[in-house]
Amino acid sequence: MTSHHHPHDDHDHHDNHFSDMQARVKALESVLTEKGLIDPAAIDAIVETYETKVGPRNGAHVVAKSWSEPEFAEWLRLDATGAIESLGYAGRQGEHMRAVFNTPETHNLVVCTLCSCYPWSVLGLPPVWYKAPPYRSRAVIDPRGVLEEFGLALGAEKKIRVWDSTAELRYIVIPERPAGTDGLGQEALAALVTRDSMIGTGVAMPPGEHAGDRP
């Protein structure tokens, strides 16, 4: 399995698709931008205030279950698509998934949300900065530096693997279970799983804090 730099421009057709509604909203956005009535950056900023309100954010439950149930974690490792579907989270962009597990030795980071491949039904809404082309190229070249900018300083001994989604396969990072969470049930565990921890730009929160991603 390749971890980075793999060329995927050979998929040159049908990688991307807009539903009628997606395309209609883009059409409205184009017209209104051209007329100077809206600014796409301002729209992104408003959407971002609702980032925790978009999509079912099923990934947090997937992570919490894998922390609690070793058999489920193993299933997720071998067949993430099936394991995630078993929770009733089928369809949409979530269909072909691979789970990559953080360990004490390795941290995983997912890039590529430029097109329609981001599995928002599992991970929630992508952060606005994540869609910026410079982020994607820099994350591949200098993941440690990019993560430091996000306030995530990883020790020099920790290996970082960068996973670039393809048209067929999307990734979810399974963050390490925070210390001091032994007594917690799955609901309480899921509350510690931020969106950023599932794309690898953050880690799961320590217990006692409320879920909330970086602004």
Partner: peptide, 19 residues
């Protein structure tokens, strides 16, 4: 027209590139 144009643009955009 713009709606259809966006749909063609999406189909024509290779993976990893902004639509």
């Amino acid at each position: 027209r713009l709606t259809q144009s966006w749909q063609r643009a999406a189909e024509a955009t290779p993976h990893g590139h902004p639509i």
